[in-house]
Amino acid sequence: MSEENWIEVGSTDSIEEEDLIRFDHQDKTFCVYKLTDGFYATDGICTHEAVHLEDGLVMDDEIECPMHQGIFNIKSGEALSPPACEDLKTYPVKVDNDKIFIKID
């Protein structure tokens, strides 16, 4: 993949630990998380209904949807608890000079 696919999200201190920020790019929404072992990114909308996960709760490696408590693993995107049953798409993240980049395909 070409270099252009890495999109800058913001500075590393824009996210608190065990928290997330929403990042919109073109017509898509992403969530970028800071976990104890680094940064991760997923789609920003729950796979159950069209709800922004930015308002959800991050616990350990999981994001819980604010609407019906569907739970996803942030690192793998796996849907862990109903009513969410479809996995969440994840994206590679890199940090360069205190800046976070995500790779969007």
Binding site: V51, H52, E54, D55, G56, L57, E64, C65, P66, M67, Q69
Partner: peptide, 9 residues
């Protein structure tokens, strides 16, 4: 939608 879930949890 989305505004009370985290706090309720």
């Amino acid at each position: 939608i989305g505004k009370v879930g985290r706090d309720i949890r």
